Simulated scan of single mutants.
Amino acid sequence: MFARSFLALLLSLLGSTLAGAQNLTVVAAASVRHAMQDIVASYQQQFPDDAIRIIFGASGGLTTQIINGAPFDLFFSADTALPQRLYDEGLTTGKPVVYAEGRLVLWSADLDASTLTLHDLTSPNIRRIAMAQPRTAPYGQRAQEALTNLGLWDVVEEKIVFGENISQAARMAEAGAAEIGLIALSLAVVPPLNDQPFQLIDRDLHAPLTQAFVITRRAASNPIAHRFADFIGTPEVTAILRQHGLHS
């Protein structure tokens, strides 16, 4: 009798513990994949009991999922407009917080991209140009802006092959599906792409790639979400972002 009562009590306590347990789902732009993995690793050195899952994708697609009720807690976008949209629609706990600024680069697996400019994309030797889809990815939007501002978009548009997000565009360039890619600096400075030279795109050719994050309304009472958000403002994270070409 005692054994049965003790077992029932133990199961009850275990059930209460599991019911009260919380974890964190972070969704982030594909351009910050490597930086975010390092940030989470650094965070968990300090808070090893906090369970964190990370999902990467195009910022526009992740925004749509949040609007449609996806169970995400923090959203790190590659721009500020999409987090602002979520805030305006009452889907966040507060205003967007800027955490980084990205840069666009020209990168190629076979060419010396450091010697090239956007005007060289008109060359007949370059038959395919990889970039992220402008409809869903801020880096794709900025690449299109830069080409448009130089009067090159209509000239090279038929050469462009689109990746769903910036990581996919980088993989296309790496695999040779395109001779060159317009990709994120944060991807060009880490393996496996960092063995090849790149060319920074003049930031004056497009709107800034200022990047912001928000805590979603779903995570309003999740202490891990607020602890992780506070961690983003620490010197450790600033150093990680700079190391990955995301100057905050």
Results as ranks from 00 to 15, higher is better:
201 I>P: 04
134 P>L: 02
63 T>R: 10
145 E>P: 00
89 E>I: 03
157 E>S: 13
23 N>E: 15
174 E>L: 14
171 R>T: 13
27 V>W: 07
126 I>H: 00
87 Y>G: 07
20 G>D: 11
169 A>R: 02
174 E>G: 11
233 G>P: 07
43 Y>Q: 10
196 Q>N: 13
87 Y>M: 12
110 D>P: 01
169 A>T: 00
203 R>W: 05
125 N>M: 04
182 L>M: 11
24 L>Q: 08
44 Q>D: 07
227 R>C: 06
232 I>A: 09
238 T>N: 14
215 I>Q: 12
124 P>C: 03
97 V>C: 12
48 P>T: 03
99 Y>P: 06
146 A>G: 09
215 I>K: 09
134 P>S: 06
40 V>F: 03
61 G>C: 03
31 S>T: 04
178 A>L: 00
9 L>S: 12
73 D>N: 06
189 V>A: 08
168 Q>T: 14
182 L>N: 05
69 G>S: 07
186 S>A: 08
171 R>E: 15
24 L>G: 11
101 E>R: 15
60 G>W: 01
70 A>R: 11
230 D>Y: 06
182 L>I: 04
155 V>K: 14
233 G>Q: 08
148 T>W: 08
215 I>W: 03
96 P>M: 12
41 A>K: 13
102 G>N: 08
177 A>N: 13
90 G>C: 10
136 T>F: 01
152 L>H: 06
117 T>F: 02
139 Y>V: 01
99 Y>L: 07
8 A>K: 10
181 G>W: 00
208 P>G: 09
243 Q>W: 09
11 L>K: 10
25 T>H: 14
133 Q>C: 06
80 T>R: 13
89 E>N: 12
119 H>K: 13
220 A>L: 11
151 G>P: 09
135 R>K: 12
223 P>A: 03
49 D>Q: 15
219 A>R: 01
58 A>L: 00
211 Q>N: 12
161 V>D: 11
35 A>K: 05
10 L>M: 15
201 I>T: 07
